[in-house]
Design a protein around this nucleic acid. Sequence first.
DNA 1: TCTGGGGTCCTAGGACCC
DNA 2: TCTGGGGTCCTAGGACCC
Length: 403
Amino acid sequence: MKRVVLHIDMNAFFASIEQRSNPFLRGRPVAVVGAGKRTVVTTASYEARSFGVRTGMNMREARVACPHLVIVRGDNRKYIDASKRMIGILKGFSPFVEPYSIDEAFVDLTGVGPAPRETALKVKEKIREALGITCSIGIGPNKLVAKLASDMQKPDGLVVIEEGDVKGVLERLPVEGLSGIGRRLASALDSMGIKTCGELSRYPASLLRQRFGITGERLKQMAQGIDRSPVSTEDAEPKSIGHSMTLPADVHDRGILKVYILRLSHMASERARREGVSGSRVSLTIRYPDFHTFGKIMALPYPTNDTHDVYRAACTVLGSIRLRCPVRLVGVCISSLARHKTLPLFPSDRKKADALEAIDGLNRRFGEDTVAWASLKDGHGDAGKGVIPPSWRPWGARSFDVR
DNA sequence: TCTGGGGTCCTAGGACCC
DNA sequence: TCTGGGGTCCTAGGACCC
């Protein structure tokens, strides 16, 4: 049967949501930015884009491009909520929905209902009604082509690429127009005299294979518009869970670094516990002011999702690194995850696990950080002690916004 | 007031085992 | 004296995506 795949891409998602929920922002150039001091533009509204504001710009660049830019600090919960509603709407059209990112999804319409274009129009209408924002939809014989199609008309687009038109569309498309070919691959291909997908599709497979290995074969297929990957409805098991943060200022002091590492360990392991997974590797990422970034991994003797275990491992890794200068960013990641839920061997461990579960429960109910490790609150002073027993604070704590 | 944060996948060398 | 080869795990790093 002829495959029909939709790709839905929300337009300027975060910025649109903000404009939707705050009338003042409508029609104005808006940039949604991250929380930290040293942040960048996460999403620019179309008004802002017309001034040249782009994702990834720092605040200075963005303001130079557009002096009357309205800057909004992002609120992830709002976006996650909207994303869930979007997925819910899509599931009303087909059981085969694959969330691809917070603002994108694939829908397999093969054998489902009538003309795909009409279905797509209905999807757009429903999303506009429910969320008050627009999206671009691409339709193609597979995910690769559908994604390409959704990219061709923004905002509020609808592009159908029929099987028979795929070759024609790809012939002149620059290779980097395909999802999966980034800057590096594009420039490597360019150095081989390949600029368009048409050229890539005719290039000898053996030479591509020689140059790029397994990726080379995939490249040729992509350039021909071939993609057999299924629209996957299964929630993929996470492979890693981690957090990183650019520090407000560069830090050389290991004690201060450890306070951040504790916070990041807590965030990552809390999520792992919520997911019901444990990891047997912990990695630490360091970025220097010159942006040189590297990581070090440590294998653990057993899988864990215990904050203290993760923190200790991350500190051990830190101990093995000779810092050549202050640190700009630090990250903690738990990987080699398994659902495998082992019962703690010793009663004392069981108590600790129970306590962690109770803390997580309270935090979920009353807001993040209702109960947290004391040294997270102490500013930078007392990091050396490691984890201090959880300290109670009334659930109203969040409204003080201690952070 | 220079450059965020969350991921996945692939490669490649060395250790280690049989 | 000669000097093999397959397989897996571990770690580091980079490309790419949103």
